[in-house]
Nucleic acid binder design. Structure first.
Lengths: 151, 151
DNA sequence: CTTGAAAAGAACTGCCT
DNA sequence: AGGCAGTTCTTTTCAAG
């Protein structure tokens, strides 16, 4: 088990805001030395609490102006249906995130497309053609606000 | 306007996989020199295409074992309702993401909690008490798979 | 657009309190 | 555990082909 104290939490908070912050800066911000901060960061990384950093490329700037969330209810729910559906859906380049969920739907997908017409192409020719797909619900993203969770 | 060529796209792809990749590695992978790769990365960063890297702290490891997606339909939809709802919901620490969407729901929230009981507390005492909240739909996250979009 | 080199800075290591 | 001093490595900048 990994013990996480308040200093660790402060480090996580700092890194959640800026993943490129280095051990020196973080140490200064927390009033501890650079090696000390470095050791803690390494410990957290080795423990798997801090995963690899992600770079969110600006999709809009790259010509992917539309983000759509799909809620999908499978028509058939055997073991193979789930696995096959996940594999098939992960093979679609426009699908960014596949979430297996419990509730009204079975899966939730985050899909990006150049525009609504492009999204319709993806939906009709790539997603609706999957055999297991039952009910589908779509939500088009207007704005998105992220926070640094309750670390 | 920023022109983005295939080499830039390759750099974005490489960085999306590992935000800590350095200019030297990327240059080697693409067959261009280290300073060239570095200049391109800097240009993309300055242009805002490459935002700051995010470090995904492992919520489960920190004791936040439950992630729930909420679809929320507002009961009243005036200008003030939207703004007030966004502000109120962003003030809840367990709310990680607030998405304003178009479709069956008006908002989608990503909420983390320690367990289902903790989530129920958040839902009942923090979210359902908001005046504008109408219909609410919940999906509990089981597994999540991310891909590096179609850059 | 490239190479090569030098300056700056960050990561890492031992040793000490 | 935390800090100091030092070594090694990368990043960053510059000069020049």
């Amino acid at each position: 088990m990994t013990e996480i104290d308040d200093t660790d939490r402060a480090i996580l908070r700092a890194l959640a805001q800026d993943a490129h912050a280095n051990a020196g800066e973080i140490g200064r911000a927390l009033g501890i030395s650079q090696p000390s901060a470095w050791r803690r960061i390494k410990r957290l990384t080795d423990a798997g609490v801090l995963g690899g950093a992600h770079v969110p490329a600006d999709r809009a700037g790259l010509g992917f102006g539309v983000t759509v969330f799909l809620g999908i209810k499978l028509a058939t729910k055997g073991r193979t249906s789930l696995e096959e559906f996940e594999r098939a859906v992960l093979a679609i380049p426009e699908v960014q995130v596949v979430q297996h969920v419990l509730g009204l739907f079975d899966y939730r997908l985050r899909v990006v497309a150049r525009d609504i017409a492009d999204f319709e192409r993806v939906l009709r020719r790539r997603i609706m053609v999957l055999p297991a797909v039952g009910q589908v619900e779509a939500n088009v993203l207007l704005t998105e606000e992220r926070r640094d969770g309750p670390i």
